[in-house]
Design a protein around this nucleic acid. Structure first.
Length: 934
RNA sequence: GCGGAUGUGGCGUAACUGGCAGCCGCGCCAGACUUAGGAUCUGGUGCCGAAAGGCGUGGGGGUUCGAGUCCCUUCAUCCGCACCA
């Protein structure tokens, strides 16, 4: 009779939860030992609490942390909360509960649930992004951005003071405005001399510096969501609607903070080569950065009015310059009004109106639709003087490149469709590669009809054209990025206020000693609806005096999350965001585990912040995460019942096609497998009270679907419930057993009994049939040693490669074999307790204590395995031919010698050998050659 | 459309550099113990076949003495991105 039952487990787990806290076993500080930093993506503390999907990554990281600790590392394994954010604010609007309060409550609940699972977090290092002691430093880092610019010559960020010095010395001729479209307000030029700089007034100087700052204010097109009353980041807009709520999003011009992440595009791209992320993760980031190389080409413009002498296009295919049959500029392009001819004016204006009328959603939905208008103006091909009509069309985006393209219908599918649709002539420069039906974007064709490029392969022609463009001064090599600067203002209450003061409409950094700029208390969280956030309602807070006012926006949640991993190294420092000493000791995150949904925004911003802090000398590394693991999502397994339309009758799934039914999700609490608990169901909601059922046999069978785990789908499984029945150790091991960490999988408890039985069997190895602890000091047998060492080796390999599912299997095999041998020897069991402790810490700790150890198993050492015990089923046998030893071969122990000779002679080895290559190694199992290494 | 990933028993999955496919668990079958049970233990379980034997890693082709693994092709599913010139 085992006492590893529901009650026994509860006692063990509660006991050790208390003991671990009391003994402060998880407290860490720098030491002589090598460090290892294991980090989870910290959660947003939602009101719904943890479901079984959340802990998947946390369990994996906890296993790694505990394992590395056993391997002699000083392990930093902290946890915190991404506590600013929209849901708390929405909740406040709906329920009148202050975000600070609901957030604190939610965090308390999260911590309670996490502690039950037995994570080895050092809670002494917990951070919350909404804590003024924390966001003081978020604001401080923001000010470092504000006080910096990107020196392209040195390829790093520098202080604004150095830029001021440069301007005073030599003007900006060698340091052009990052935004190539920017012009000085009075002169209309984009360069100034040192002398001019000296003459500029304070406001103009600030205006100019703003063009260089890494955190800057600018009027930008932002994604305005009327329904949410706020601006959203690009990655918060999906297919033209808001990520949250799915509300329509339109463009709107607002004066916003942005981070100049585009200056780091190249380094963010290059940095990917140094880190260990999955290919898909790197690819997603590369796509987001969207680097493409090509050329800028200036074309002379011929229009009725000579207001605009030239237009500029960006192309990745300058080699197709002789195939240009038309030009297209974005409808929003400033050139349009200046080049449109009298004759075409009406048509162009009609088209512009049409474009304006289209919402973002429509535009996205109708991407294939071809529209456009001719401006009446022409561009001149610099190489053959051909006059090319200039059109406008919304398929050209104002925000990318120069907002203008050269149309090459024979080589570009979109251009081809455009030409066909408007009946424009198509010049073929690629001969037989173009079939007249569809464009061919090949690089391999030999160019025709292409003047001085005739006879060149397109690949080679690209460089030839660029050289020629540069020689003639009408274009140059150019690299373009899809990535935009990151909008950093949110019209929200529950976020970090911007630590700046406006004087004469220009922002100035607050003094470091006045930080944090605390979020003022308020109970009005409604956005103003005009674009200003809730803080604008607090007039006394906004207005400092007659000349000074504050910013009414707050930072996005990305801000606090962009550097929290640095704060963990020194979480209570109130003089610095973290001491250089701590940062140097703990350094990069060695393993970062989290969901792939944060692939773009969070990772890029974190990487950016680290690079900027590195440039400014606060850090010794410029990539935050050495290795990234994306755990798969655990999806929910929903259940449906089928109500016959207009009645309160429910029909079992197998019979539902005989009726007209509406499917309804039913809470999985009321379903056992697929069978509905009819009694419980009728008590669920008042309208189901008198429900009748049409059964299959005597059962009501539900429909099933795999969907995301969500409260509103009634398919959430709470880890507390699992722990209640099986204990935390079973939950931990079962979540790992479910499948490979990085794979998404639906939650089910089908196999959980197997894991539970394993733990009970393990427990029983230490106890006699009366349930009394009983291990002996007898010498282990060879068989037992082999099982032990095989298991240790496998576990070590598996954990190093994050294959936790196979580790669990390996433990099961081990226990099965030891059970068969009725092992109760300390020398075998004790090392296994250590090896199991990362996976099932509670049971391990209890057995460890029973084995007579005073110190926690958390501080033990991972046992060494001995190869000798693993090798005993094979031996090496020298093979000699003509009296000379030519190779050593590995054979199975139970194979008769004659067979070996036979195998050797009969095998393929002889054939290979005859080719003159003696094999280095041959692995044989009875009757068969397994491996020949030549 | 582009990019990435994944396809193995009834199910979740395993298989180091190509080397006896299906470990471990669930489920199922049989047995033991039982005052009958959603408990525990033991054995069996890829498919077809009475057996001998044959067939088997989404489909088709290839390389190799040998392919789940490598190459080509095709289909299916999932996840990103989406007029980026």
């Amino acid at each position: 009779m085992s006492d590893y039952n529901k009650e026994g487990i509860r006692q063990i787990e509660e006991k050790w939860r208390r003991e671990w806290v009391k003994r402060e076993v998880y407290k860490v500080s720098p030491s002589e030992k090598p460090k290892y930093y294991v980090l989870d993506m910290f959660p947003y503390p939602s009101g719904a609490g943890l479901h079984v999907g959340h802990p998947l990554g946390y369990i994996a990281s906890d296993i790694v942390a505990r394992f590395k600790r056993l391997k002699g590392f000083n392990v930093l394994h902290p946890m915190g909360f991404d506590a600013f954010g929209l849901p708390a604010e929405q909740y406040a609007i709906e329920h009148g509960i202050h975000p600070a309060r609901s957030t604190a409550d939610n965090i308390r609940n999260f911590i309670r649930q996490m502690d039950k699972i037995g994570f080895s977090y050092d809670w002494g290092r917990e951070v919350r992004t909404c804590d003024p002691k924390y966001y003081k430093w978020t604001q401080w880092i923001f000010l470092q951005f504000f006080d910096s610019w990107y020196n392209r010559k040195k390829d790093k960020a520098e202080r604004i003071a150095e830029l001021v010095e440069i301007f005073g010395r030599e003007g900006n001729a060698d340091y052009p405005f990052p935004n190539i479209k920017y012009k000085l307000p009075e002169s209309g030029k984009n360069v100034f001399t040192a002398l001019e700089w000296e003459g500029f007034g304070e406001k103009l100087r600030q205006e100019i510096l703003m063009q260089y700052r890494l955190a800057y204010l600018a009027y930008t097109d932002v994604n305005w969501c009327e329904a949410l009353g706020t601006v959203l980041a690009n990655d918060e807009v999906i297919n033209g609607v808001s990520y949250r709520g799915g509300f329509p999003v339109v463009k709107k011009q607002m004066r916003q903070w942005s981070l100049r992440i585009t200056e780091y595009a190249e380094r963010l791209l290059r940095g990917l080569d140094e880190v260990d992320f999955s290919d898909s993760m790197k690819e997603v980031q590369r796509n987001w950065i969207g680097r493409s190389t090509g050329a800028r080409i200036r074309f002379r413009v011929k229009s009725e009015r000579s207001a605009v002498p030239e237009m500029v296009v960006f192309t990745t295919r300058p080699d197709t310059i002789f195939g240009v049959d038309f030009m297209v500029v974005a409808p929003e392009h400033e050139i349009v009004k200046d080049i449109t001819s009298e004759e075409q004016r009406a048509e162009v204006e009609k088209y512009l109106k049409y474009v304006e009328s289209r919402s973002e959603v429509e535009r996205m939905a109708e991407v294939k639709k071809i529209t456009g208008a001719f401006t009446g103006a022409y561009a001149v091909n610099p190489f053959n003087g051909r006059e090319i009509p200039i059109w406008i069309s919304e398929y050209v985006l104002a925000g990318y490149g120069t907002g203008a393209i050269m149309g090459v219908p024979c080589g570009d599918e979109r251009d081809h469709k455009f030409a066909k649709h408007f009946n424009l002539p198509i010049t073929n420069i690629i001969g037989s590669h173009y079939n007249g039906e569809e464009a061919n974007p090949t690089y391999d064709a030999i160019l025709e009809n292409s003047g001085f490029l005739n006879g060149l392969q397109m690949k080679t022609a690209i460089q030839v054209v660029i050289r020629e463009l540069e020689a003639r001064g009408i274009g140059e090599h150019q690299v373009n990025y899809k990535m935009r600067d990151a909008g950093w203002s949110r019209q929200r209450y529950w976020g970090e206020p911007f630590p700046v003061v406006y004087r004469d409409e220009m922002p100035y950094a607050m003094d470091e000693k006045d930080l944090p700029l605390e979020l003022p208390d308020s109970n009005d969280f409604r956005p103003s609806g005009t674009g200003e956030g809730p803080l604008a309602n607090l007039k006394d807070w906004v207005r400092i005096n007659d000349h000074e006012r504050r910013d009414t926006n707050t930072m996005p949640t990305h801000a606090g999350a962009a550097w929290y991993f640095l704060r963990f190294t020194d979480p209570h420092n109130d003089r610095e965001f973290a001491s250089r000493e701590s940062l140097d000791y703990w350094g990069q995150v060695d393993v970062y585990i989290g969901g792939s949904e944060h692939a773009v925004a969070h990772l890029l911003y974190s990487r950016l912040w680290v690079k900027v802090l590195y440039d400014l000398g606060y850090l010794g590394f410029d990539e935050p995460f050495r290795k990234l693991i994306n755990q798969g999502k655990i999806t929910g397994d929903s259940r449906y019942v089928y109500r016959i339309r207009g009645t309160n009758k429910f029909v079992s799934a197998g019979l539902k096609d005989q009726y007209e039914t509406d499917p309804l999700r039913v809470d999985i609490k009321f379903v056992n497998g697929l069978e509905l608990n009819r009694e419980a169901f009728t008590h669920w909601r008042p309208d189901f009270a008198g429900a009748e059922f049409i059964l299959e046999g005597d059962k009501y069978i539900c429909g099933a679907a795999i969907e995301k785990m969500s409260k509103s789908y009634f398919n959430v499984v709470n880890p507390d419930d699992i722990i209640e029945t099986y204990g935390a150790d079973t939950l931990r091991m079962y979540e790992m057993f479910l499948g490979p960490l990085e794979q998404s999988k639906p939650w089910n408890t089908n196999g959980i009994d197997g894991v539970f039985k394993f733990l009970r069997k393990f427990w029983n190895l230490f106890h006699d049939s009366n349930g009394n602890f009983a291990v002996t000091d007898a010498e282990p047998s060879r068989g037992e040693l082999k099982v032990l060492h095989k298991t240790l080796k496998k576990i070590e390999q598996d954990v190093e490669t994050f294959s936790f599912n196979t580790s669990v299997s390996e433990f099961m095999i081990c226990v099965n074999e030891l059970t068969a041998q009725k092992t109760n020897k300390r020398s075998i069991l004790e090392p296994l307790v250590i090896a199991l402790s990362p996976f099932a810490p509670h049971i391990a700790e209890e057995l460890w204590e029973k084995l007579g150890h005073g110190e926690t198993v958390f501080n033990a050492s991972f046992p060494q395995y001995i190869e000798r015990y693993l090798k005993e089923d094979s031996f090496e046998y020298p093979i000699s031919i003509n009296g000379k030893v030519r190779a050593k071969m590995e054979f199975a122990l139970d194979m008769p010698k004659e067979d070996i000779e036979k195998v050797v002679l009969a095998s393929e080895i002889v054939r290979k050998w005859s080719e003159g290559k003696p094999p280095k190694k041959v692995i044989v199992v009875p009757g068969r050659i397994v491996n020949v290494v030549l």
